[in-house]
Nucleic acid binder design. Structure first.
Lengths: 336, 336
DNA sequence: CGCGTTTGTGAGAGCGCTCCCACGGTCGGG
DNA sequence: CCCGACCGTGGGAGCGCTCTCACAAACGCG
């Protein structure tokens, strides 16, 4: 309520409450070793003065910043600018961080320059920890940070032997449920549109498809996209060229599935009558495609939240599991 | 390259370079009053030690944090979880902030509690400025911050008399271009699906529609949605009930336009043969609807960038214009 | 009733940085 | 050739906080 230009300091609160700076600090930081009447007096002074702690000063001595960085590859928002994963992760992360009273510093990793910038920033200990979302390939940054003692976690298992803890979903089981659903519906020729093979999600979902098909002694029919709608549309054409008789396709992302749907419409195949389509992600728009898309839902918000929990525990020095694998489940709509 | 647990301080760099702390500070901060050979020596010491300035210490004395908050209403990512605006704004903001070597602190404004939290955070001067994106109604926060001297800007003209500078697009002109296009194509009965009337974008686009129609002496046919796909689908039904003969509809957002397209398909109207549809935003997915959506493009990335520029100038104490209105343009595809 | 122990509070140092001011050296003008 | 102006550098204070340590007061025990 005070409109004083100058912010009050601990000193002033102390003077007003008639105690020492140390005591005010104790009250502000929730120490219980302060006598109740004094606590009350301090709290009143804080309220009256509109005191807000100076985080910079606190950070200087505690060496903690109470803020956490979330690093996103710029492609996550450029190429996939309507990718549902990005907002979902951010929301989950925000929620959990808010609960823990930490700040979120968002960093886009586009160029090599920004890569460097992030490294310097983290190395400079300007944050207490770093989260990486859906990085491509085997980025050395998470490992490098972990090595210098900066807490780091990833969403999506890092390629290579994981240098940092991560949270991911059970891609293989998710795909298996989709393929099983197709099989149960009596589909004979089940193709797949896979994601990029330099991303774990792309690799694992393809592996899951292969595995599931092998169990049913069927031939695999594969085309590879890059998780964009456009690539899904193109891949669908290739698939149709390869096997005009295919009657189902598991697509590794909803965005690509939407593209596939478009191609199918264009070439006059009915969905699901002629070809069943199942996507992956359960993006918001999946309920609104034509026909509404059957898809494997991944708990994207939860992934964000778990990343934060993992990171916070890591930062506390607690022991953490190396990986946290979240379940998926099939959302059956009309496309397959 | 050093893997020393302890980060080097200015002091150590100074010792290594054989100069004083003050001189190192000057070099690090780019002061030109240091003799070239000394500059070089300092820079070498910085490099060898892997020195990174401690931002907290710097902030403590300079009172600048070099970071900027971006506040997003949680609805922007919940209800509109595939709203193209959110990632777009974030990208634009990130790009510009990176260029200015500032950090982005992202804050979701969901509950009243978080509202309070944001206020305290900003009031505590933990950031140098605050940007608000697509806030609902007449949020008092921007004005409150401005009043206590915290630089603040909005995207989208705030309702009421604007308390802070803002960047927005020319909604009316954008809508006018859409309606004119419809008129030029010979459409007779042009309806609209408006956005929520507690958001400027909703209000202005409806006003633009009314204005454009009035000029052509046509009757307006209005239904109101809330910018979601679902509401667009429902609104389209209402419109069809109100005037079964309508042959065009201007929809205030692409998401709602997508919903409208679905309804039209369901009731058997062909687009654009029977009914032309024009959206607003030019979301990524607009190119992939069936048929591809004609829409009014708004430069969303640019809006983010301009917000940052405006805010930075405000923070420098430079005079800034009260509003920055960016142009839109019609992207003609197949739907209208 | 005096002792040690516990409990609550205050004094003071110091986190790493910037910036003001003082100081020594170099230069130009009278 | 001496003195004032000027430029580059170092010394030192202090930003607002936490935390260790010392200390005073209150307690329980023999």
């Amino acid at each position: 309520m005070t409109s004083a230009r100058e912010r009050p300091t601990l000193e002033e609160v102390a003077r007003r409450a008639g105690v020492s700076r140390a005591t005010v600090s104790r009250v502000v930081n929730g120490s219980t070793t302060v006598a109740p009447p004094i606590q009350e007096a301090v709290r009143r002074a804080v309220r009256e003065l509109g005191y807000v702690p100076n985080l910079a000063a606190r950070t200087l001595v505690t060496q903690r910043t109470d803020s956490i960085a979330l690093v996103l590859p710029e492609t996550a928002t450029r190429v996939f600018s309507d990718d549902p994963l990005f907002p979902g992760i951010v929301r989950g992360v925000s929620q959990e961080l808010e609960a823990a009273d930490r700040q979120l510093v968002l960093m886009m990793a586009g160029s090599a320059a920004s890569h460097d910038r992030i490294e310097r920033y983290a190395m400079g200990r300007h944050v207490d920890g770093v989260m990486f979302a859906s990085m491509h390939g085997m980025d050395p940054l998470p490992g490098a940070l972990a090595r210098i003692g900066m807490p780091a976690v990833c969403s999506g298992r890092p390629l290579g032997r994981p240098a940092v803890p991560y949270v991911d979903i059970d891609h293989v089981a998710g795909v298996a449920s989709a393929v099983r659903h197709l099989l149960d519906a009596g589909r004979q020729r089940i193709a797949t549109i896979a994601g990029p093979q330099d991303m774990v999600a792309g690799i694992e979902r393809l592996a899951g498809y292969r595995e599931a098909l092998r169990d049913s002694h069927r031939r695999s029919i594969v085309a590879v996209g890059d998780f964009t709608r456009e690539s899904g549309a193109i891949a669908m054409r290739h698939l149709l060229d390869d096997d005009p008789k295919l009657d189902a396709v598991f697509v590794a992302s909803d965005l690509m599935a939407d593209g596939a749907l478009r191609t199918l419409r264009e070439v006059g195949r009915r969905v699901p009558a002629d070809v069943a389509v199942i996507g992956f992600d359960d993006a918001e728009f999946a309920r609104y495609t034509d026909p509404p898309l059957t898809t494997v839902r991944q708990p994207i918000i939860e992934i964000g939240r778990e990343m934060v929990r993992l990171l916070l525990r890591l930062a506390e020095g607690e022991p953490v599991e190396e990986a946290l694998i979240l379940p998926t489940h099939l959302v059956v709509r009309d496309s397959g």
